[in-house]
Write a protein that binds this DNA or RNA. Structure first.
Lengths: 124, 124
DNA sequence: TCTAGGGTCTGTAGTTGATACAGGCTCAAG
DNA sequence: CTTGAGCCTGTATCAACTACAGACCCTAGA
């Protein structure tokens, strides 16, 4: 399954340990055997993680996948909360980017021991 | 010093343990006593962390503060590397934001068990 | 003088999301 | 029959803290 999905082997076992992935059936020698449903679930997890959902959020989303009697409204809440988080992080990073690029621009970059970046950090 | 800087008490001791902050002199009963230089250094660390520098990067910056014979060019390298990282993170998050907001927009948000977000994660 | 409350001290464990072994078993090819 | 690869479990490690436990210490009020 690691090869099929590109997911790290240890990560799959980690997901199993924390209950994100189910315990798969084992061969007589104890080897895990996975089927298409496992692969599909893992891909779901990977895509969710790639979109920045935390494992707890993924757990919530999986609960909604597993129990299709639950509603779109529940999913919407999780996704919108996450979207808000992402937007806040973007705003934060953009602020940082502004400060950094302003300061770096004032850097002469020469061999002198005076530096605009250090000064900004010392005196801001 | 925690009160003076707004830094968590445990965090200050953590910085001391890992060598970001120097071991302060102690009273006879073993209480730490800090002076203005400590406060200034801690504020430097806090501002650097706030700008997203890792503790290792902060350590590098502090080295340049401590040894003013070193150059502006060295600082510029650290700061520009970090700026590149920040810009990459912003781009990543903006991609995520696009996908998320597109998907959430297709969410009906009603009581039905069908959900555009789940479908996107399942079938993408 | 006693006591209650807050502060400080050290040291250790927990957090998130993995990743990296160590040490052992199994399996297929040459 | 060996060699190399793969799998198994379990534990340790990473960043950057945070949260205790259990022990002191210090000051203010009764």
């Amino acid at each position: 399954m690691a090869r099929a999905t590109g997911c790290n082997l240890e990560t799959i076992r980690y997901y199993e340990k924390i209950g994100i992935m189910p315990d798969p059936p084992r061969s007589t020698k104890g080897y895990r055997s996975y089927d298409d449903a496992h692969v599909k679930r893992l891909k779901f997890v990977m895509r969710s993680r790639d979109l920045g959902f935390s494992l707890e959020e993924v757990r919530g989303l999986l609960g909604l996948v597993d129990d299709r009697s639950r509603t779109c409204a529940e999913v919407q809440i999780i996704a919108e909360d996450h979207l808000t988080d992402v937007q806040a992080k973007i705003a934060d990073l953009q602020r940082i980017e502004r400060v950094l690029s302003d300061t770096v621009a004032r850097c002469t970059g020469d061999a002198a021991p005076e530096c605009a970046v250090i000064d900004a950090l010392l005196d801001a």
